[in-house]
Design a protein around this nucleic acid. Structure first.
Length: 807
RNA sequence: GCGGGAGUGCUGGAGCGGUCAAACAGGCAGGACUUAAGAUCCUGUGGGUUAGUCCCUACGCAGGUUCGAAUCCUGUCUCCCGCACCA
């Protein structure tokens, strides 16, 4: 059979008849979505095919179940990789990207994915990013987009700053060998921290994989504590601590070496020392493991608010600048880091919680307070509360909750991104540019730094307010901005009056099933929740969370056992597989290997198994002449429908495939047309092209993709047939066993059964003959007087266990 | 260091308190069909034993809970992943 012709044929017909295009309003909706793909110019390999197939199967299944299924596609086409690749290929990123997209579309169509192509989105389209800019201005208006000078992560390879989420173990997310540097720059931020509490608390309600939920919790990192004001040089400096019970043990303070206001604390005498130290800190890479804790005295002293004690303030390399207030109270007796620091610089280590040996190491557990004035003898746990209360009463501190989550740095010093719609005017300052879209200038020079900085005509504009001289912001937005709301635009992709129609979004949202990789746990999957909450507060959506069910698919590994990727050189291309086996076979194989959430390995021999099955199915429809069902088939079919439906519902495709195979194997020569059709429907989500082809072959004119999913008739499921089958199976084994013991190559077999079992065993006579390699088989009822039974074996027969005699 | 997940046949993997551990697929071996190969079909694939029986050994290792555990608990080893000086 010619797979490729069949595939092409149906792909064309689907497209022509707009089979997968949907409109809102017709019945119950179901929204299936894959994470916004970045259109790499390298194209798709089998790993991608695996991802898309998983969602496509569900979309097709839900569609047949009668849901109004929204299953759209688009491309996250702005971003650094495209710009870099384009520069390398000496092509404009736009041209380069669009070529890549066209290639992607072609390949995805060849996979038989049932997208509604009419909703196609591309984030580099000004009609799309116009709304990114619109959102930015809304955020600006609400104080959620702001500009500040801050210590930021800089990747020297990318030549741009990065968000915290894009720094992995001190390295750039795109360059695993490049250390991220710290710089102080004026940058644009989104105030994600405004929703920190809600983002954190909402996690529990999500039907997401547990590990993702835990990762998000750790990332947002909630901790309860108290902010205590320490007075330094007459000014109040707040610090955050979760252990106020150890406040009597504070023997010094440490401020981060990156702190913006550090120099305010440095005295004239200490200036040289501190500057020398800062130089050293900057030259050693920030996050290398096990950096020794070091610091220098600033010359200033702080007053411990609880007892008025004067304590030295140091500057140190181990204090994070962007957590809490960038300064800590050091309790060397009860914090391991402070302990190491104090040991090194011979600062007093004071015991205030009894329980450990603070000469050897810091005692960080809870215990009983000592050397703590009126709180002596109190348990740490109680003391945390009591001391907090005391400080609050005296207006020296305030209990707070602190989050690790930081505001999202969205500025990028690159060309291929959404321009930030801001104009700087000497007179009016920061002015929003409401004349959207702010497009990218086409003619720019690539190579050195941010190309936009040299686009003079584009930069120099009139101030929208005073019409005076002004200049554009040259930073563009992080690509994760574009992917934070695309799922809403799919609901109304062509709207040019507003970002989207509220009613349409209300109908389609939330996303019912979202697939993608685990790597987005603390990036995209937080950003898009943040956006959703912001839109809700704007009154644009009526939901709190964008996704009901998140599914993380496993990774496809190559034959070498490593994750399939172009750079590793272990890719298998869908085109190639398609040529030999057909894409339906590949789809089937990918999901039958293992549970879809697990990593799987591509194997050449493995796909043969799926191929054999597909061929068998195809051949069967070539030959079979439908007749009537017997009760056994009816039972089998209904049971299969029931179980396959459940398995699809729970994304246990591997198990569904097994049941599909078992069902097919149970077809004898007597199968009704209706049963065959039901089988095809069950097959359709996995192998849509072949299902369509055979659907027509048996005489239908409609699209099976649009047919109704078969329903279960529970009454027809009869466990009796299963038991009978098992009995036959056992009998088979028994005969073979005896045959082997007696060492007869082609025995004559005599079977003796109880009279009521005679009928179904007779039906299995041929099957037994083949599988036992017997010369002949005769089946007698035990009470048959004419039976051949020279050794009188028939009296051994029991219910469900016939007696046998071989010769 | 903290957190999460996983260890089942020759392999990928099902099973996640109980009627049978290994469904399904792949591999390998034997057989049938062929002049032959391929395709296809059948059988076997821990050990012992037997005319189809039964026994033993087996779900990383060691304990425990239970009438009963691959499945629950504790400890331990190995592997994978995430976070990592968060005060």
């Amino acid at each position: 059979m010619n797979f490729q012709a069949i595939e092409k044929k149906w792909q064309k017909r689907w497209e022509k008849a707009k089979v997968f295009e949907v409109k809102e309003g017709k019945g119950k909706k179901y929204y299936v979505l894959e994470m916004f793909p970045y259109p790499s110019s390298v194209g798709l390999h089998m790993g991608h095919a695996f991802n898309y197939t998983l969602a496509d199967i569900l979309a097709r299944f839900k569609r047949m179940q009668g849901f109004n299924v929204l299953y759209p596609i688009g491309y996250d086409s702005l971003g650094l990789p495209a710009e870099n690749a384009a520069v390398k290929a000496k092509q404009h990123p736009k041209k380069y990207t669009e070529k890549a997209i066209n290639n992607f579309i072609k390949q995805q169509k060849e996979l038989g994915l049932s997208y509604d192509w009419s909703r196609l989105l591309m984030s580099h389209d000004p009609n799309y990013f116009k709304w990114d800019q619109w959102i930015f201005l809304k955020m600006f208006e609400k104080g959620l987009a702001y500009r500040k000078k801050a210590p930021v992560n800089w990747c020297p390879k990318c030549n741009t700053v990065l968000a915290n989420e894009q720094v992995i173990q001190g390295k750039c997310w795109r360059h695993e060998k490049t250390d991220v540097e710290l710089k102080h720059l004026e940058q644009w931020f989104f105030r994600t921290t405004k929703y920190a509490k809600e983002l954190y608390e909402g996690i529990d309600k999500l039907k997401w994989p547990e590990d993702i939920k835990i990762m998000q919790k750790n990332w947002i990192g909630k901790s309860f504590g108290i902010e205590i004001d320490f007075e330094i040089n007459g000014k109040k400096w707040p610090i955050f601590t979760t252990r106020p019970d150890t406040i009597y043990g504070v023997t010094f303070m440490v401020i981060s070496a990156q702190h913006l206001k550090l120099m305010e604390l440095v005295t004239e005498r200490q200036k040289k020392n501190v500057e020398k130290f800062l130089k050293k800190v900057r030259s050693t890479s920030e996050k290398d493991q096990e950096v020794e804790k070091e610091g220098v005295f600033t010359g200033s002293y702080a007053i411990n608010p609880i007892n008025g004690e004067k304590i030295p303030v140091w500057v140190g390399n181990f204090v994070l600048v962007d957590y809490g207030s960038g300064m800590v109270m050091a309790v060397p007796g009860h914090d391991q880091r402070d302990f190491e620091f104090a040991k090194k610089y011979k600062i007093e280590i004071r015991e205030v919680v009894k329980g450990g040996n603070i000469r050897k190491e810091a005692f960080i557990d809870i215990g009983t307070l000592v050397n703590s004035d009126k709180f002596n003898g109190m348990n740490s746990k109680k003391a945390i509360g009591e001391i907090s209360k005391y400080l609050e009463k005296k207006k020296l501190g305030k209990r707070t909750v602190n989050y690790k989550l930081r505001d999202w740095l969205i500025s990028r010093q690159r060309y291929w991104g959404t321009p930030i719609p801001i104009i700087y005017c000497d007179k009016c300052g920061i002015v929003p540019d409401k004349n959207l879209p702010v497009k990218l200038p086409e003619k720019v020079r690539f190579g050195k730094g941010n190309p936009l900085e040299n686009a003079k005509e584009w930069i120099n504009v009139k101030c929208p307010k005073c019409k005076g001289k002004a200049r554009r912001e040259t930073d563009t937005m992080d690509t994760f901005v574009n992917s934070s709301w695309y799922f809403l635009r799919y609901c109304d992709p062509k709207n040019n009056k507003e970002i989207f129609n509220k009613k349409k979004v209300k109908y389609w949202m939330p996303i019912d099933f979202y697939t993608g990789g685990r790597e987005h746990a603390t990036g995209h999957l937080i950003y898009f929740r943040f956006y959703t909450k912001f839109f809700r507060d704007l009154g644009l959506v009526n939901i709190d969370e964008p996704v009901v069910k998140l599914f993380n698919q496993g990774m496809l590994h190559g034959a070498d056992g490593k994750v399939m990727s172009k750079s590793r050189g272990n890719v298998v291309l869908p085109e190639e597989v398609s040529k030999t086996y057909g894409i339906d076979t590949a789809r089937l194989f990918l999901v039958s290997l293992a549970s879809p959430d697990k990593d799987i390995e591509w194997s050449k021999t493995g796909i043969e198994g799926s191929s054999r099955f597909i061929k068998k199915v195809y051949d069967c429809f070539d030959k079979i002449k439908p007749k009537k069902d017997d009760k056994r088939i009816e039972s089998k079919l209904n049971n299969a429908i029931k179980e396959i439906t459940e398995d699809l519902e729970n994304i246990r495709y591997n198990l569904a495939v097994i049941k599909l195979r078992t069902l097919f194997d149970s077809f004898g020569k007597e199968v009704s047309k209706k049963t065959l059709e039901s089988f095809l429907k069950l097959l359709c989500p996995f192998c849509p092209h072949i299902a369509e082809e055979l659907w027509h072959k048996v005489g239908n004119k409609s699209f099976i993709s649009k047919e109704k999913w078969p329903s279960v008739d529970e009454k027809k499921i009869d466990k009796k047939f299963e038991q009978q089958e098992q009995a036959v199976e056992k009998l088979k084994q028994d005969i073979n066993n005896v045959k082997r013991i007696l060492n007869i190559a082609k025995p004559k077999v005599y079977v003796y059964v109880l009279p009521k079992e005679l009928e179904f065993l007779r039906d299995s006579k041929n099957e037994l003959l083949v599988s036992c390699g017997a010369e002949s088989i005769e089946i007698f009822a035990v009470n048959d007087k004419k039976k051949f039974d020279p050794e009188n074996k028939s009296k051994k027969a029991k219910l469900g266990k016939p007696a046998i005699y071989l010769t």
